[in-house]
């Protein structure tokens, strides 16, 4: 079980949170202009990184706010927590 440092509430158990997958996926600005392959890449393909991975969590049973987490997917160690809209920090696993 992870202990996640919510940027708004402080450290809480993982059960209070829900993971929503990879962060920083930009929706194409004009969906009509992209090809099926480009849309599929946005819609379905994920980097699924083995190593440092940037993902979105929401504090469901707390402040209900979204934020980003940088985590090493091999060790499961949480390396950084940062707010929505912030640039992903450079971290080492």
């Amino acid at each position: 079980m992870f202990l996640i440092d919510c940027p708004y509430c402080g450290t809480r158990q993982q059960t209070e949170f829900h993971c929503h997958g990879e962060a920083h996926i930009a929706r194409p600005k004009d969906p009509d202009a992209v090809s099926d392959a480009e849309w599929a890449d946005y819609m379905f393909n994920r980097s699924n990184t083995k190593g440092v991975f940037y993902e979105r969590w929401v504090h469901n049973h707390g402040c209900r706010r979204w934020f980003n987490v940088a985590r090493d997917t091999v060790s499961d160690r949480i390396l950084a927590v940062y707010r929505m809209g912030e640039q992903p920090p450079k971290v080492k696993s």
Binding site: M1, Q14, C19, G21, K50, E55, T73, S75
Partner: peptide, 14 residues
């Protein structure tokens, strides 16, 4: 299954 990406071959106790 856990909902987060992981290669650790272990899951959450909850």
């Amino acid at each position: 299954s856990d909902l987060h990406v992981s290669y650790s071959q272990r899951g959450s106790f909850d």
